[in-house]
Amino acid sequence: MTLLDQLNQDMKQAMKNKEKEKLKVIRMVKASLQNESIKLGNDTLSEDEELTVLSRELKQRKDSLQEFKAAGRDDLVQDLETEVDILQKYMPDQLTDEELEMIVQQVIQEVNATSKKDMGKVMSAVMPKVKGRADGSQVNKLVQKNLG
């Protein structure tokens, strides 16, 4: 089942159950997927392209969440946390810290990285391998720790 099929199915269920928040998030994601499809000029998106859109939506909400927490906007924080939880259900299973650490160390050896100067090389090799399954800032911290 494609992501779009899953979203359509969940949207129908959310309508039946009168889950307004879930319905809003699903509609937003569907719109983002359709916009991406139009932008790329394709009728359908590949799994990788769908994952890119989902990751972008999730990252935007997490960034906003941090800003709202810092500004003390508790009224908006709760709404965004709900949206993040809903979006998280459509993401692939996240890598554990140990799995991510192994991937980072493996890539460091593959590209023969020795210092922080090689950070860009390592990051550009790691990110496609963990796409959608790990947060970029988490990867960045691990790479710095292992190159430090």
Rank of each mutant, 00 (worst) to 15 (best):
L54A: 01
D135Y: 02
K62A: 06
D85I: 03
S46Y: 05
Q60K: 08
E99C: 14
Q34V: 03
S137V: 13
K89L: 08
L142K: 15
A71P: 09
K131M: 10
S115Q: 06
E49G: 06
D48G: 15
D74G: 12
K89I: 09
L87I: 03
G120W: 04
L45M: 01
A71S: 13
D74T: 11
K141E: 15
N42E: 14
G136S: 15
L54T: 02
R56Y: 02
Q34E: 10
L142E: 03
K117F: 11
T114E: 15
E50F: 05
D93H: 11
S46M: 07
L51P: 01
V126L: 11
E81N: 06
S137I: 15
G72Q: 11
D74S: 12
Q60L: 11
L80M: 00
V126A: 05
D97N: 10
K59V: 08
L142N: 05
E67I: 12
T82D: 14
E36G: 01
M91C: 03
E101M: 10
Q60H: 06
K145L: 14
Q78F: 08
K141A: 14
E36K: 01
T114W: 10
L40S: 01
V139W: 00
L45F: 02
N35H: 05
L51I: 01
S55Q: 14
K141I: 14
S37W: 02
Q34I: 02
L54E: 04
V126I: 04
E67K: 12
G41R: 14
K131G: 13
G132C: 03
R73Y: 03
T52W: 06
K121G: 01
S124A: 12
V107E: 08
Y90K: 02
E101P: 09
N112F: 08
Y90V: 00
Q105R: 10
G41C: 13
D74I: 09
M119P: 06
M127H: 07
A70G: 15
V130L: 05
